[in-house]
């Protein structure tokens, strides 16, 4: 019950209480000294809070602009790095695709041996190759 009157009182102090309920509250306020005292104290707190005017320290605008400049530079750097990596990756992928196409055209096969250039080689070939050294 008290909580209901508290909310009604609060709405009244905030100027948001509709007419009929305001009249009921005003009657209640005259009959209830405790609610009246609460009203005065809340009013005082609200007035104190409304006078609260904090501000950031001097040079705040400059700090914001500097932060934006730094973050923009970092973002640009990140963008450039990302683009370079993307280009490198795409070049590598294109090279692999070209290799596959070239191997297929030459060998008519896409087996791993053909792709690695080891097709047709025997163990002896390696032995002979190593024997030269």
């Amino acid at each position: 019950m008290k909580r209901n009157w508290n909310n009604t009182l609060l709405q009244h102090l905030l100027g948001e209480l509709p007419g009929p309920r305001r009249k009921a509250l005003e009657t209640r306020l005259t009959d209830d000294p405790q609610l009246q005292s609460c009203s005065q104290e809340w009013q005082s707190v609200i007035a104190t809070l409304r006078s609260y005017q904090p501000d950031f320290g001097s040079g705040f605008e400059q700090r914001v602009m500097q932060s934006i400049a730094i973050k923009s530079a970092l973002a640009l750097q990140e963008k450039v790095t990302w683009r370079m990596m993307l280009r490198f990756g795409m070049s590598a992928a294109a090279a692999v695709i070209l290799l596959i196409v070239w191997v297929y055209m030459q060998e008519k096969s896409l087996s791993m041996e053909h792709l690695l250039g080891l097709a047709g080689l025997k163990t002896d070939d390696f032995t002979n190759l190593l024997a030269n050294y």
Binding site: P54, F56, F60, E61, V64, M65, I68
Partner: peptide, 15 residues
């Protein structure tokens, strides 16, 4: 233009 917005609204954000 952002600088001007900061000047206008810094107190509001500070609160």
């Amino acid at each position: 233009a952002l600088g001007e917005v900061v000047r206008r609204y810094r107190q509001q954000v500070a609160r």
